[in-house]
Design a binder for these strands. Structure first.
Length: 423
RNA sequence: GUGGAUGUAGCUCAAUGGCAGAGCGCCGCACUGUGGAUGCGGUGGUUGAGGGUUCGAUCCCCUUCAUCCACCCCA
């Protein structure tokens, strides 16, 4: 490197305007879907106490993957690695005055101290959406419907992505009938979760290490191979029935091997996967019934999910569904012929802005050719020229940068003309 | 935390133990009231950093830093 530019922090991303365009696009899709289901936007602090996450997130996330540090007063702080504990805390703090069921969504930055790789950075953005205070299977169905609507909205088909659903209570009930002790079931959940992520051999070893008998291991394999298992769960039966109403059933499948890593999930759990199998889960969520109580509030159940911006963007790129983003928001470039026409050019440009047209102005004189080149580069559609001839006649020249076509017209007709052209 | 790969011009990449190159970009000119196309000319580098071997290292060796990829975990 010839230039010794100060480096950015490992695992962070710079959003140059092109990337910012994609981020805003994604954010707008999330807002649109959230609001269409009646959810309100909220935001919490990015800094939380370390205590908030202990025993609520997965141990790995709290102990190894969080940015934890002491402030100047010696208090232990954490850059939030996820939103749900913050949500629970905020709900608990104002529980008596909030109206339930509560429907909230949020989009913001999160941090995890991990080795960056494809689709994973240390600073990332997440869309979180949660419904609290309704414990029905229909509430679970609403969140899954929202997830599916979002996938549909960004242009992904049910052939490309699929939401896999399971229920932890259902699985727990069956593990009990296999004589697996309650304190072991968390580990067995973990085992189930890794069924598709490990080789058969090492999975069997893992099962043996946990102390499962060959018979029990066999029962677990049969269990997670049973695609009709959901019929034994009243909750899942009702949930799938409700999903029919949304017309997105083709996006949703039952999958008994879906468990999820976070310890606070208590009932329905779900993950969206790219069906090509090239990527890991696109997003995940589920029902958590104890979280608000755990942070000091009255027990109120919730269901929600989180979508990371990186993976969804990767998938959208893979399928070519991410739109191109122009470099400038203005379609009109106002040239400056020479210094003597500065006042007139700036005034005219500003009268366009007052009429609601977005205009970029040339501020220092240079060759017109260079100005057109610049206008083209920044993505403007029209260039406007006021030279000595136009100034003398109170006219302007509009040049269509795509076709090269030029028209001279009275200054008074400029606004309407540009609007007619779509400027 | 574990393992693998890669660092050469603004970008994408060549090359050789012996003068470091191309394409794209950028700047200029042809064309001082017209951009994209074309032609011509020009700008471009302590070969990531430090050390070692060598007459000589961008190349071989060691160290270090950075990036990427996979595992782990997860969004």
């Amino acid at each position: 490197m010839a230039r010794d530019v100060v480096r950015s922090v490992k695992g962070t991303r710079d959003f140059y305007p092109e990337e910012m365009g994609a981020r805003i696009w994604l954010y707008e899709k999330m807002r649109q879907v959230s609001e269409s289901f009646g959810y309100s936007e909220f935001e919490g602090p990015m800094l939380e106490t370390y205590e908030l996450y202990i025993a609520k997130s997965s141990q790995e996330i709290v102990e190894k993957q969080s940015f934890v540090f002491e402030d100047r007063g010696g208090d232990k702080l954490t850059l939030r690695p996820e939103l749900t504990p913050t949500l629970a805390r905020m709900v608990a703090a104002r529980q008596p005055q909030l109206t339930f069921p509560l429907r909230w969504w949020s989009f913001g930055p999160f941090w995890r101290y991990e080795r960056p790789q494809k689709g994973r950075t240390r600073e990332f953005f997440q869309w979180n959406i949660d419904l609290l205070g309704d414990d029905s299977p229909e509430a679970d169905a609403e969140l899954i419907a929202i997830a599916a609507s979002f996938l549909k909205e960004v242009g992904l088909t049910s052939g490309e992505v699929r939401i896999l659903v399971n229920n932890r209570e259902l699985m727990d009930k069956h593990l009990a009938t296999f004589d697996i002790a309650p304190e072991m079931r968390g580990e067995v959940f973990n085992l189930i979760d890794r069924r598709d992520k490990m080789s058969e051999e090492s999975w069997q070893e893992y099962a043996a290490e946990l102390g499962l008998t060959p018979k029990q291991t066999g029962q677990v394999i049969d269990l997670i191979g049973n695609q009709e298992l959901w019929r034994q769960s009243d909750s899942l039966v009702k949930m799938f029935a409700a999903l029919e109403a949304y017309g997105i059933s083709d996006y949703v499948s039952f999958a008994p091997q879906i468990i999820r890593g976070l310890v606070y999930y208590t009932g329905t759990v779900f993950e969206a996967w790219d069906t090509s199998g090239e990527y890991r889960a696109i997003f995940g969520g589920g029902r958590y019934d104890n979280l608000v109580g755990d942070v000091g509030g009255d027990p109120v159940g919730g269901v929600g999910f989180a979508v990371g911006d990186l993976i969804i963007t990767l998938i959208l790129q893979q399928y070519g569904r991410l739109p191109e983003f122009g470099k400038t928001p203005s379609a009109v470039f106002f040239t400056l012929f020479d210094q003597s026409l500065l006042q007139e050019s700036l005034k005219l440009a500003n009268s366009l802005r007052q009429a609601g047209i977005k205009v970029t102005s040339q501020l220092t004189p240079s060759k017109l050719g260079k100005q057109f080149k610049y206008a083209d580069r920044i993505g403007a559609k029209f260039a406007i020229v006021v030279g000595p001839d136009e100034a003398a006649n109170n006219t302007v020249t509009i040049k269509n940068l795509a076709t090269g076509e030029q028209t001279e017209l009275p200054q008074g007709e400029l606004v309407n003309n540009l609007k007619a052209l779509g400027g």
